[in-house]
């Protein structure tokens, strides 16, 4: 069975044209007109990637995102008509893995989808176990434990952690992380990294305000402190 993409968009013309473009890439596309419809559709037929427009009648894109995130760690791309910080950060806080600003070019969308699918399928590393004090990462199994307790991460958070852990102690600039984890070009958005790092910290750190593992290196970026 092929890759299945669920698009949630209330503008019928956008929905149809995006479906056609994505189908040209060889993907199966399911459509939802409203947030409610999207949540119901996702429960019936989980998709591999979900594309959510923020401005929806009824429950908005943020709510759809949170609702789907509660039942699945499926990659979610938010589509926003505005690039201002509020919408972007709110979308990422709601659990989105990436975002796109209208008007987007379908090639950009499919590149993002591919990047998300790639890391959803495999974390490409040969190491079977990474251990830092009480934090243990099993890249192959997609498993993280702290003090023996399993920590639940989304696929993007997991990929971000593995990326940092594979080169523990080395500083990654936001751009490097954007490229390696999200497949963005240089003009990617550092906020994407920052919000994911914040989310990651709330899960793996004992005290997220004073991180022990995922630390900021001022002016440079982030690193995993071995």
């Amino acid at each position: 069975m092929g890759t299945r993409i669920l698009t949630v968009e209330d503008d019928e013309r956008i929905r149809t044209s995006v479906r056609l473009a994505l189908e040209d890439e060889g993907w199966q596309v399911a459509e939802a007109n409203t947030g409610e419809e999207a949540v119901a559709e996702f429960s019936r037929h989980p998709a591999d990637v979900v594309l959510i427009d923020i401005m929806l009648p009824g429950i908005d894109g943020f709510d759809v995102c949170r609702s789907i995130r509660r039942q699945s760690d499926v990659p979610i791309i938010m589509v926003t008509a505005r690039a201002d910080t509020h919408d972007v950060v709110a979308g990422l806080e709601a659990g989105a893995d990436d975002y796109l600003t209208k008007p987007f070019v379908p090639k950009e969308l499919s590149a993002r989808i591919r990047a998300l699918l790639r890391r959803a399928r495999s974390a490409d590393t040969t190491v079977s176990r990474l251990r830092f004090a009480d934090l243990e990462i099993a890249p192959q199994e997609g498993l993280v434990t702290r003090d023996g307790q399993v920590i639940h991460l989304t696929k993007t958070e997991f990929r971000l952690l593995v990326e940092l852990a594979n080169n523990a102690g080395r500083v990654f600039s936001r751009e490097a992380l954007l490229e390696r984890v999200w497949g963005h070009d240089y003009f990617g958005d550092g906020r994407l990294v920052d919000v994911h790092i914040r989310r990651l910290r709330t899960k793996v750190e004992a005290d997220p305000a004073n991180p022990r593992y995922v630390v900021t290196v001022r002016g440079l970026g982030y690193k995993l402190q071995p």
Partner: peptide, 14 residues
């Protein structure tokens, strides 16, 4: 402006 442009770009791609 953004909405129709999104449609334009997607349709053009097709």
């Amino acid at each position: 402006l953004r909405s129709p442009l999104t449609t334009f770009n997607a349709s053009l791609e097709v």
